[in-house]
Design a protein around this nucleic acid. Structure first.
Lengths: 219, 219
DNA sequence: TCTCAAATGAGAGTAACTATCAAAAGATGG
DNA sequence: CCATCTTTTGATAGTTACTCTCATTTGAGA
């Protein structure tokens, strides 16, 4: 007797995606199939969302379009919103940040890495996909909410990095504030980008946003 | 055909509560009844949550305990989570911030007002209530998500204030970043407080958090 | 007291989930 | 190639948050 909106352990998949070849590990047939199912589900979902909107698209429809059973759908995405929230970029970010000089202020590291990554990463298709996701996040409150939740998303990763860099086991309040602020800036920037129809350069916006965060005391 | 998790207009109630006497308007019998119903629902709900937990407590139970029909429950709280999210403090904060000198950096104003307000405001009962709410928010993801959603909550208010103070009609990205960062710090601090069992002084934590936010560039 | 608007309750329906269990399909060792 | 073992899948039945609609009640105002 659980609530639709409530907690539920994630399947803890390593959230693969377009960048499958990342960890050179050769994938078994099983893994490849799972990956394909996951991608198909997400692709069909996004297509349907674009065609009919978020609410008019039911999980059953998505499952049917991807030719799996509803049961299977929920195994891959325990909540409908998760279709839009899986981010394959986190591990890349983490690695890049770890590679920065240890003495550098964290925000500086994060800014350099994030902006650089966004500037380079985006193939036209990835850009379009990211935009569509953000557009939905901006317009569908439940998606937005889930995106802000943060636990799975960048905030958690940033917090881990910060804690690690500070040589601590558990994060302090200060570290949590830093992670939350950066993560909020990230999300806010993406939403702003989507709000303006994606016509700005995302990397520039991000740079501006994080620079602003550094000078917060002055404004 | 709307989704449980999806958007849905709030009834736009002026969210009354313990501070009903705020706007001295004498309440009609009808208004008093509505107020009482709302309070009863919330009180019974919190009691049940504490007794049996969030998920084990169904809307029907709450309605029954408050002696109204389920239909009526949903008229007052369109989503279950809303039981915990009504905040009567926002308008007070807004007014206090508006009263600060106009040239002052926003974060400085906000810090002074928030810390001051928290330090003074909390009657023992209010403190306990706030704690219970945060405890649930910390442990129930869906509540946490809804709390972070922000549009209604402090972020929106802060953003309005910032925009107003900047003499603009629409917020810039920078303003949105500022509001998001402060709001995130607020939420994070409250959750931290709840995580640690409420044994710290919330005002102190908040002060620390916002000070840290000011010095973000340095860490 | 009569009238009108607002609040309530009842009932039926939808869709996102959960739990369980049997069948299918990939991995593995011989 | 086969036999076993494990993982993934599908089917089915159920729970619960929420929506819609409409008839009934109840407070407001003349």
């Amino acid at each position: 007797m659980t609530t639709p909106r409530s907690a539920r352990p994630r399947p803890s998949d390593p959230s693969p995606g377009s960048l499958e070849e990342l960890a050179g590990a050769p994938l078994s047939l099983r893994e490849r199939k799972k990956l394909r199912t996951r991608q198909t589900l997400r692709r069909e979902a996004v297509r349907l969302f674009a065609e009919q909107g978020w609410e008019a698209t039911t999980v059953d429809q998505i499952a049917a379009a991807a030719e799996v059973s509803p049961s299977t759908f929920f195994r891959y995405f325990p909540v409908k919103e998760d279709l839009l929230l899986t981010d394959e970029y986190d591990p890349l970010m983490a690695e890049a940040i770890r590679a920065r000089p240890a003495g550098e202020p964290f925000l500086t590291s994060a800014r350099a890495v994030l902006v650089g990554l966004v500037r380079r990463m985006l193939s036209e298709q990835e850009r379009a996909e990211l935009y569509e996701r953000m557009r939905l996040a901006a317009s569908v409150p439940s998606v937005r909410a889930r995106m802000m939740e943060g636990a799975g998303q960048p905030r958690g990763m940033l917090l881990d990095l910060l804690t690690e860099r500070a040589g601590l086991d558990a994060p302090t309040l200060e570290l949590r504030i830093t992670a939350a602020a950066i993560s909020a800036a990230l999300t806010e920037t993406s939403l702003y980008w989507a709000d303006r129809g994606g016509r700005d350069d995302l990397a520039d916006l991000l740079d501006l946003a994080l620079e602003h965060l550094q000078g917060l005391a002055a404004h």
